[in-house]
Simulated assay, not measured.
Amino acid sequence: MKNTIIYILLFLTTIVSCKAQLISLDQLSQCESGNCPNYTFIKDTNNRLNKFVGIWKGTYLDGRTYEFHFAKKNDFILYGGKPRDMIIGRILIKANNGTELENTISSTNGQTHFNGFEFDKNLIKYQMYYSGNAECNDKGHVYISFPDPNNLNQMRLVFIQDMDIIASCPDGYKTVIPDAKILLLTKQ
């Protein structure tokens, strides 16, 4: 009888500790500067990432055309981190004359240099990180959201370039995604 009680307690402790190891993207969005519970997995338990999945296209004021392919990956391990559900981004960017400026459409999941992380506290903006041409500081945070939460066919994308100092880029180099500008995209 004594052994049975010990086994039951051990079993219940194992179940409770396993549940504590998983947190949702919603819970992660509420963490304050390292004040997050200890976790092993980050899951999209409310399927918030699904609305971003698909092919999105848009044109910037200078005539560049953008095609973003967003795919949801479950339990994806990036750079040796913990498994998490995230969006992986692929892009095709063309100049107004049709010249390809960036094309990662056929890149493998770990080589797109465009990966998701977390939602803001209000669960409206999803933060990603892009590092296409890191040598020229063409890297930074990308925020995707919907201007109208009732219209999931139009997305807003904003790229905020990292503030690193780079001395080896050609004069006049521009990031492939416009820095600190809104890019409106339409779902295809």
Rank of each mutant, 00 (worst) to 15 (best):
N133P: 01
I165T: 15
I87P: 03
I93T: 06
T104Q: 04
T104F: 09
Y129R: 11
W56N: 08
I166D: 09
T104I: 11
N137Y: 04
K19C: 09
K139H: 10
L12W: 09
N109P: 04
E32F: 10
K125P: 00
G63I: 04
T4C: 13
K2S: 14
Y130E: 08
L9A: 11
C31P: 06
N50F: 12
F146H: 03
R48A: 05
K187A: 07
N150W: 10
R84T: 15
A180W: 02
D44K: 10
Y129S: 08
N103Y: 02
S107V: 05
I23T: 07
K73F: 02
N115S: 11
I160S: 13
N3R: 14
I5F: 10
G98T: 11
D179V: 07
A71Q: 12
A180I: 06
Y39T: 07
A167E: 13
L9R: 08
V16A: 11
Q21H: 10
V158Y: 07
Y173H: 00
I23V: 07
T175D: 05
T65G: 01
P178V: 02
Y60I: 00
N109V: 10
R64V: 01
I160Q: 12
S168W: 11
A134C: 00
P37N: 03
T45L: 15
K174D: 09
